[in-house]
Simulated scan of single mutants.
Amino acid sequence: MTHHYGYVGALFAAVLFGVSSTLNKIALGNVHPMVVAGSVYLTAGVVLMALRFTPLKERLLSTLEFRVKTQRRFSRRDVGLLGLIVLFGSFLAPLLFMSGLARTSAVNASLLLNTETLFTVLIAAAVFRERVPRSGMVGIALIIAGALVVSTENIGSVALMENPWGNLLVVLAGLCWALDNNLSRFLSLKRDLLLVTSLKCLLGGGALLSLSALLGVPLTIPAQSLPYILTVGSLSIGFPSSSTSSRSGKLGP
């Protein structure tokens, strides 16, 4: 039954990540989207890095191995891959998502994020030549139909909603996370996944906050928004990143 744990972890991660849209939407009421994105990922990175220095580290890493042979060393190629993963998965994707979420509803954002799965499958099939079963094709069709319904007022007339840019930004975020998913598969067998995922979050979050400072965006986070950001960072980003990466090839949303 151990080979099923990856699927359970991925499902649990999806639930936690789905809740994040609502919490992020509340935080965006008082904080700039770029600051929310950076703070959430920086929080996740700090939490994951802190776990590496606790007795839970070896237990967690052993649980994530699932009898699969892991790699202990990192090559120059791995460092380059990590850079691309940071760019797409923890910099561009959260920036696009938070900017889109600020312009659309949390429900729309959560539903449109299903396009991440669509893009992940399409990239895996087109670039990595993975075989897509018939059931997968049906799922892709349903995702496209759902995204079309959410993105339009009337599926018959295909009239865009009053604020289409928010939906478009969320879809683009899904594309970036899909690239992240496919690239992350190459690092998913590293022994120290906590190091990989924490670096991803720390570098991406730090870059977003640094860019915010350079652009003159206020970095102040009101006290009423802080619990939402900390919750999303530690539970909706940090935990899913560590729980799904070893078997799904994904380092997190």
Rank of each mutant, 00 (worst) to 15 (best):
S62Y: 02
R103I: 04
G83C: 02
S99V: 09
L101E: 03
R59T: 01
N108D: 12
P55S: 14
L111P: 08
F66R: 11
R72F: 09
L111F: 12
L92G: 00
S110Y: 09
S105A: 11
S62T: 00
L95W: 15
L87I: 08
P94M: 10
P55H: 01
P94Q: 09
F91K: 04
A93T: 05
R59S: 07
F74D: 09
L87E: 10
L111V: 15
R103A: 12
R76K: 15
G100F: 12
T120E: 12
V79E: 08
S99F: 14
F91P: 00
L81T: 00
F91M: 03
L112Y: 02
A44F: 04
G80S: 02
F53K: 05
T117F: 15
V68I: 15
R77C: 03
K69A: 11
R73D: 09
L96H: 04
A106Y: 10
V121R: 08
G83W: 01
L112H: 11
P55A: 08
Y41G: 01
L82A: 02
L42P: 01
L118Q: 13
L51A: 01
L95E: 09
T115F: 15
G80V: 08
V46R: 00
L81Q: 06
V47P: 08
S75N: 08
L84D: 13
V47Y: 07
L113R: 14
N114F: 12
A44L: 07
T117G: 12
L82W: 07
F97I: 08
T70P: 03
T115I: 02
R73V: 05
L56K: 02
M49Y: 09
L118P: 12
F66V: 03
F91G: 04
N114Y: 15
L92S: 00
K57P: 01
L111A: 06
K57H: 09
A109T: 05
L42N: 02
L101H: 13
V107L: 14
K69R: 05
L101M: 13
N108R: 13
G89Y: 01
R52E: 11
L96W: 13
R77M: 06
K57C: 02
F91T: 12
T120S: 14
L61C: 01
A44N: 04
L118W: 12
E116G: 06
L96S: 00
G89L: 00
V121A: 14
G45V: 04
F74T: 07
L51G: 00
I123Y: 06
T70V: 06
S99L: 04
G45F: 10
T54Q: 05
R73G: 09
F119V: 00
A93L: 02
R73P: 03
F88I: 00
M49V: 00
T115L: 10
T70I: 02
F119E: 06
L82E: 04
V46Q: 00
L96M: 10
L92I: 07
S99Y: 11
L96I: 11
S75C: 13
L81S: 03
A44W: 07
